[in-house]
């Protein structure tokens, strides 16, 4: 029988181990989220990130080594962004019917998300590269990472800020909309899709199917608008 350390040193250097670990950690996170009744605080991505970070720390593995394996999953972010055209196409009739309110809510929600984050961040003295990582945080992750990179931010930091933003949106949307007495499902869903991307969209689908569909539209449209808006907004604050 071979030495365990020898097997480990082979595995730790091959992409297979960390690709496999990423999928298992996510499945575990998804299982936890299902067990918790899909409560917004138990987010499968957050669980997977914590589990993997602890494993990397315990096994003294560098992020670069981990990424050798995980890059195969990471690569799919690009094609997934392109695939966001599908929900937009599926709901094209709905979009056309409510075009004016959709455009108004998109412009208002998207610009307030970017500008207020930069404004509060600047007031607290965040440095420029942090502001660049923060600017696209309401956008769906694959697009946010691309925006962050093109603005000179850190895509890995943006990924975490995006997840936290989604969780905040998913937690506050229902009590906030009730307090504001906003009853239109389309408005409630669309706003959370723009402000809190896929995690907010998942939350909207739990509450009401029409809210979910509008959240998906909001997420896809916001991805395009933030990509165009964030560079201008950031230049204004730097």
């Amino acid at each position: 029988m071979r030495d365990v350390a020898e097997i480990w040193s082979y595995l730790a250097e091959s992409p297979l181990l960390w690709l496999c670990a990423t999928l298992i950690a996510y499945s575990f996170g998804d299982w936890c989220a299902t067990r918790a009744g899909r409560a917004p605080l138990v987010n499968p991505v957050l669980v997977a990130v914590i589990v993997l970070a602890v494993i990397l720390w315990v096994s003294d593995t560098s992020y670069a080594t981990y990424f050798e394996g995980a890059q195969f999953v990471h690569f799919l972010l690009g094609p997934a962004t392109v695939a966001l055209a599908v929900p937009l196409w599926l709901h094209r009739a709905t979009v056309r019917r409510a075009l004016l309110p959709i455009l108004a809510a998109l412009i208002a929600g998207s610009s307030v998300a970017v500008l207020s984050a930069l404004w509060i961040g600047q007031a607290f003295g965040l440095p420029g590269d942090l502001l660049a990582s923060l600017a696209p945080k309401s956008t769906t992750a694959p697009v946010a990472l691309g925006i962050s990179e093109s603005l000179g931010g850190s895509p890995t930091l943006t990924a975490v800020l995006v997840i936290i933003t989604g969780m905040i949106g998913a937690i506050v949307v229902t009590p906030l909309m009730n307090a504001l007495r906003i009853r239109d499902w389309r408005a409630r869903g669309f706003a959370v899709g723009v402000a809190a991307h896929g995690i907010g969209t998942a939350r909207a689908f739990q509450v009401n199917p029409q809210a979910g569909a509008f959240a998906g539209i909001g997420m896809a449209l916001n991805a395009m608008l933030t990509a165009a808006l964030a560079p201008w907004a950031l230049a204004f604050f730097l």
Binding site: V49, L56, Q71, V73, T156
Partner: peptide
């Protein structure tokens, strides 16, 4: 959401 795990671990 699986796709942003690798970046999140960063």
């Amino acid at each position: 959401s699986l796709l942003f795990v690798p970046a999140g671990v960063g």
